[in-house]
Nucleic acid binder design. Sequence first.
DNA 1: TGTACATCAGTGAACGCGCGTTCACTGATGTAC
DNA 2: TGTACATCAGTGAACGCGCGTTCACTGATGTAC
Lengths: 189, 189
Amino acid sequence: MRKSREEAAQTRRRIVEAASTRFREHGIEATGLADLMAAAGMTHGGFYKHFDSKDQVVMESVTLALEEMVDGLARTLKAAPGRRGLNMAIGEYLSTDHCNDAAGGCPLAALAGDMARGSDRVRRAATLGFQKMVDLIAGALDGLTPAAAHKEALGMISTMIGAVTTARAIDDPELSAAILRQARKQLIR
Amino acid sequence: MRKSREEAAQTRRRIVEAASTRFREHGIEATGLADLMAAAGMTHGGFYKHFDSKDQVVMESVTLALEEMVDGLARTLKAAPGRRGLNMAIGEYLSTDHCNDAAGGCPLAALAGDMARGSDRVRRAATLGFQKMVDLIAGALDGLTPAAAHKEALGMISTMIGAVTTARAIDDPELSAAILRQARKQLIR
DNA sequence: TGTACATCAGTGAACGCGCGTTCACTGATGTAC
DNA sequence: TGTACATCAGTGAACGCGCGTTCACTGATGTAC
């Protein structure tokens, strides 16, 4: 039942994609390899034809999720230059939609805890993605020196991640909405 | 080997205390009941003499950790009234010490992801603790209407939780320090 | 281009292990008289 | 206050289960001539 190189590469991609959504939705520890492989339409035995270990797919799926998030951010920022695009991006990040879609949303908001306890390479992937996010947002802050924009971006991202993370943890939808609303009010200028 | 009522109550307390630190340090899923019981100085078989299930000790340990955090916050706020005490509290929360001490720190910063995926009663406990934290901080914001102070507090707490959460997830100590520094700069007035 | 053989993606059963939970048992504590 | 009995906190072995990982096998794909 050997598959062609192209098919195998597609399978690998499907596994990483399934991992990136399922880890964000259910957490890394709680998601088993059999879950992942079933979500990718296969039995779990074939996993090790593509990856050395669970940790490798964790790292690759974190990298993929961060890339997708950063790409989406870049697209929004490009649609309108400077502050206007930034305001749109902030509005999207702090939307109820994003809050309710952990599986498809920012991996830092969904998995920061798991990342802090993760392997070296998982934390490395998280750091690289975070830095790209900071640079993009700093780049959209006009009228500041690069150093000042970088600092400002760090503060904005802390608020964004904290607001979504906290809004998801609590069980009171009105309070969650108030958290997101206040963060938008603070960051959108 | 029956123990006196008082000893049994102490044992129960020790288990919840061990749980509250170990869950914050290693995550809820990754911490087994045998770990907890060993940390409390017992074998794992006795666990069910005190709790119905793992989820119950999760909920109680989240409640305890939040209470301790809220008590510490209240103590700091009481030490100096109004803005001065609030600035001290913010400085403590956003300190490198707190960032490096997940096991003894704010459970929302350490476990927000796990809480979002947790049981109803765990999320209820998280919400109650969060509300107490918001009320305390809002109470220290003078010169604002209660409603405005409440909103302001939500924004501040989002930034605080996000900064610590993110600073812990990444592997670059200088960048982590910059995140905390910027959050302090934004919030301390 | 066609044939023969090596490769290897995917299957499905199996591995040891630690998980949450249960249970029979022990013996000190608590209760009733 | 002393005695007899019931209670139950804690032990340690065991339960079934799902985990990450390994492996023998299959048969289509890729390679070499």
